[in-house]
Design a protein around this nucleic acid. Structure first.
Lengths: 229, 229
DNA sequence: AAAAATAAAAATGTCGATATTTTTAAAAAA
DNA sequence: TTTTTTAAAAATATCGACATTTTTATTTTT
């Protein structure tokens, strides 16, 4: 058993993406080739390869002969991403309710339980990352019932684009006992409707559930001066 | 006014993608670096950049240290892509009917008219490419009413993955007077429902409309031995 | 025939040469 | 003096040649 050996471009892609999402490089910031090469200690070839991947994912913008920049964030983009994600996921959930089998049901119940039992026994940061991971696993478990790899890929692509905005929402929600309790209720209600196999209602609930973060993020984005407009 | 100067990686990406979609490189075929460099006359850097783009689009597969191959085609993938595309587009059409303005209506009517008036005055190949372009423009005009760039991107991504399969359907349909007439009817009925602003019905019609190519492509794929299974 | 050693082919990565863009400084005009 | 224009310099992006590492094919040995 040995770890799959990956090339430098992939390694650079992972690290740079992490740095952008975590805010080490800020929206709109110039990504200087010489700086990136030094930071990740590699040559121009693999670096450009990693950058062009991130361009395809809309996390970086490129202009020929003028280099790369971290993609800007905007309220318009925030709204578009969350609207698209909500409608896509609502559609997927409808399919999942129609198509999901017993194994799917079991996964949904299991991940819901695992998520609900996250307690504040650890440090705030650990609690945050644990809840986040389990929350994402919960939603992924629900969506996977649609049985379509391609729809799951489209979903993953939108979630990747949402990630920088989602990070802002996460802290607000997890560190608020009130907000967290409310999410717990929403999740419980969602599971109930899923198991009742009510496709239309599940779809509608998911649509609303996924739109709730927008006002919260809007406020944070404005405060943190992350956008120009 | 001068043409935007694009780099070699983008040029190579365009040409290679075209070559794959048009079948110059067949599914599963090894993409030898030395051969590609010669064919497109450029160095390894830009070539790898272009290849990694196509990997992200699922048109090429890569194994670290073992190079690149044209992604295989399969009946399972065909079904998944068309199922995903149909459900995505059905959802988008529902939004378009709800959100589309007068300008959207005008665009839909205009592109429907342009499509319907394709006549066999040119050579078969010209006729094919003309009908194809207008057909795509028609569907894009409808979808654009959803008003979401991100949904349009997700749609474009799926269409890109469908392209190799769609090419097979195109010839069968355009060169059959019967099939073409049937499509014309479907399109006319679709426009009618769109303008009547019946979201549920439009969505359902689009779902069915986009699933009709699957049996046709299945037959061609089997005949042409494009898949292993 | 199976395993090991060797040779050939291919993929990956670094580096420096070249072209382009941006910045800075100087000169000219308002 | 301030603004605009022009020219030079610096910074940067892009690319392909070359070197290194890894995989694959071939031959030799047991």
């Amino acid at each position: 058993m040995e770890t799959e050996r990956q090339n430098q471009a992939v390694a650079a892609y992972d690290r740079l993406k992490q740095d952008i999402v975590a805010g080490h490089f800020r929206p709109g910031e110039k990504l200087l080739m010489s700086h990136l090469k030094e930071r990740y200690s590699l040559g121009t070839g693999p670096m450009r390869e990693a950058l062009s991947q991130l361009v395809a994912e809309r996390l970086v913008t490129a202009i020929s002969q003028r280099g790369y920049r971290v993609a800007k964030m905007s309220l318009a983009e925030l709204e578009d991403i969350y609207d698209a994600r909500a409608h896509l996921e609502a559609m997927i959930v409808g399919l999942a309710v129609e198509r999901g089998d017993e194994h799917w049901e079991a996964q949904v119940i299991a991940s819901a339980h695992t998520l609900a039992s996250v307690a504040e026994i650890r440090s705030p940061e650990e609690m945050l990352s644990l809840w986040d991971r389990r929350h994402q696993a919960f939603h992924t478990a629900i969506a996977s019932g649609c049985g379509s790899d391609k729809l799951m890929e489209a979903r993953a692509s939108l979630m990747g684009q949402a990630e920088r905005y989602r990070q802002l929402w996460l802290r607000q929600t997890v560190f608020s006992t009130e907000a967290l309790a409310h999410k717990r209720e929403e999740h419980a209600a969602l599971v109930e409707v899923l198991l009742a196999r009510d496709a239309a209602r599940a779809s509608q609930m998911m649509l609303e559930h996924l739109q709730t973060p927008v006002p919260i993020i809007t406020a944070v984005v404005r405060d943190a001066h992350l956008v120009a407009d």
